[in-house]
Write a protein that binds this DNA or RNA. Sequence first.
DNA 1: GTGAAAGCGCTAACAA
DNA 2: TTGTTAGCGCTTTCAC
Lengths: 331, 331
Amino acid sequence: MPTIADVAAAAGVSISTVSYVMSGKRTISQETRERVEQAIEQLNYSPHASARSLASRATNVIGLQAPLRSGVDVHVVMEIVAGMVQEARANRYDLLLLTDDRPDTLTRATRGSQVDALLVMDVESDDPRITTLAELDTPSVLVGLPTTTAPITCVDFDFEAAGRLAATRLIELGNTRIALVGAPAEVLERHTSYADRLVAGFVGAAEEQGVTASVHPCPSDAEAVPVVARLLEENPDITGVLLHNEGALPHVAPRLIGDEGHHRDVIALCPADLSRSVPGLADAIDIPASNIGVHATRTLLQLLDGAETARVQLLPPSLQSAAAATTATTS
Amino acid sequence: MPTIADVAAAAGVSISTVSYVMSGKRTISQETRERVEQAIEQLNYSPHASARSLASRATNVIGLQAPLRSGVDVHVVMEIVAGMVQEARANRYDLLLLTDDRPDTLTRATRGSQVDALLVMDVESDDPRITTLAELDTPSVLVGLPTTTAPITCVDFDFEAAGRLAATRLIELGNTRIALVGAPAEVLERHTSYADRLVAGFVGAAEEQGVTASVHPCPSDAEAVPVVARLLEENPDITGVLLHNEGALPHVAPRLIGDEGHHRDVIALCPADLSRSVPGLADAIDIPASNIGVHATRTLLQLLDGAETARVQLLPPSLQSAAAATTATTS
DNA sequence: GTGAAAGCGCTAACAA
DNA sequence: TTGTTAGCGCTTTCAC
């Protein structure tokens, strides 16, 4: 592997000149620059990442603590991560996978100078990692919105607003008894941030409008079918449903919607490409997963630049009536 | 951040002693070791990763080129990656996400000494990255099995054997006209390694046994429903199906299986937890996704250790009749 | 059993 | 506009 010294020798300049050509941190004559760039090209030179980060005290790496367990919203997680990667790469950052959920994994990555900043996903309402992050003075962004009031930047989809929006829409459609068929029980029990907020918004809006709302956990595979069947049997008065469970969606959407004899209004909350492919939905609310990732990363990069950012940034929900209507028409 | 010098000072020893305590590369007196360990503890010291890798010429990082696009088998990809992470962590390696598919991303990561080794996923039958890897002399493992005969270690599930197994089983069940409902068209057209091999095995085994087999691409969402409907209409003689498309599975499995009047034998090829939740399958073949990741990583670590490994390592398929039977009984 | 010191390949003052 | 050089924080040889 050639080093910067090899490049300097080949170009007949000093190593600092090579360094400055690469960083652009000082003006270089056209002629010198060209000679250096040629040498770099010729030698196929890439700077040694560790040497660079040792000297510059920056790694250009962002640590990512992401839930890789399958089961919970794989699509959403994937797309968020894809968005992060895209935005990071565009800014010459790499992503280092930190894949257990332990708080001290964050500490070690930071103290060992493996990363310049941290992205933390799958946040719970009262997440132990928050204290750790607060002590760490490394720029970090949470994807989620814990209830704790620590000075940590949070970026997420506004699940509470989505819950309100869905409830309101269902009521608008004439339903007086609505239900949220949501995440699997373990997700709710862990008080995963998004699940908590969705429930709060949905139930809150229903209460305000004097409508009865219930919340039902739901497995995210075909096991959802009997669960939903029982649920509908025990609550025959439910006429409007918000379905937030991408795994269960294909299995239970038709059943929830019902048939001509007993139709229900169903709103799906999931990535648009998933809801688009299910016919008969009353409406859909997109989870802009990729955007969440992009936005979280962009915010993190701003923090790295020393900028101030809003502590909480929530992407607003919107109904996709048009898309739903199209599907309904063609089906 | 404390450095190794701080630790040395606090323990009243030299820098090299601290280093050797950490690496275990020379014998240290009990007493000295304890003093050093105490100092490390007290100062909350973590060695600077870049400094270490600059001096030791090893990063303890594995580069991972993984397809983060949603759409294609998210569950499988996720679980493979999770398996990789698990095995890497257990051996004190981290994973750096390289997430465009370009060959020169591999080159840069290696030449820049960002990684010690590479894991490459989503391999096509004739993948341009293979040449790159061969030139790179960095240990690497492909997840997949390209047709090219380059000296590159490949680890994957044996999709060809799975295809044979499924065809044979379907024939055993009495079917004389069988079909593979598989990956989306774009996956087949890209000649993704696993899709190609599955087709080869399925069709090959059918031919050998004098049975007609056809292959049908299939969208991996609800769009699969009309596609499958048409397919069955146009080929009413199909009585046995191998379904390899986790996205389409919940949407089309019931339809493929049919009703009492017109039953078909359907074998699902997907992670076991997915097939388990679909009732009425004739059989299922597990894709041991997590194992693929673990195995690929383990093999890579062996290569890093300088060991020789078999160039091609395929995890054998097996029928899950028991599980399928259970599901059938309870449904 | 322990220490001193020479790098590893860069960046960024400081000098010219 | 360019060069010289002192580190960055480690590992590892060589010396004791």
